[in-house]
């Protein structure tokens, strides 16, 4: 049954199908590589507490004290990575979350309402959204 379907499909396949399939797969593959393995050079660390948002470069090492309702959460940026060094919360999940450096990764400390995220995929080296879509 499956063999028959495959055979029939091969018979029906026309040149443009192959071209389109190749282009589409290439595009998706390109997007996978482009979006998920972007070097962290232009990425930035976005820290959000309630309505306030701060943005720091991931390239410059620094220590940030983020004020939350429980106290200060200490976020460290070093070697292009960000992590929570110290937090006033009870369970310390945010510290256990470890280091983040790729766009889209995030750490959240719910008790202290601190949200840390790496941003900056699409903005990196002048790549516009529309450049990679048709």
């Amino acid at each position: 049954m499956i063999v028959l379907i495959i055979l029939h499909t091969m018979q029906k396949l026309k040149p443009l199908d192959v071209v389109i399939a190749a282009v589409a797969s290439g595009l998706v593959l390109f997007l996978f590589i482009r979006i998920y393995s972007t070097p962290a050079e232009n990425a930035s660390v976005v820290i959000r507490v309630n309505e306030d948002t701060w943005r720091y470069s991931l390239d410059i090492d620094r220590e940030i004290a983020v004020p939350g309702p429980l106290g200060e959460t200490f976020v460290h940026i070093e070697n292009g990575q960000a992590h929570v060094e110290e937090s006033p919360c009870k369970n310390k999940f945010c510290i256990a979350a470890g280091r983040i450096n790729r766009p889209g990764e995030w750490i959240v400390c719910l008790p202290n309402e601190v949200f840390i995220m790496i941003e900056g995929v699409m903005e990196s080296d002048g790549l516009e959204v529309d450049d990679i879509v048709f």
């Binding site: 499909t9 029906k12 396949l13 443009l16 071209v19 389109i20 399939a21 589409a24 879509v133 048709f134």
Partner: peptide, 21 residues
């Protein structure tokens, strides 16, 4: 020059990109 495979592919890609945009 095209079968429904190609048409379907283009349709899906168009739909998905329009939704993303």
């Amino acid at each position: 020059k095209i079968s429904y495979i190609g048409i379907s592919l283009v349709g899906a890609m168009t739909s998905n990109s329009v939704q993303l945009l």
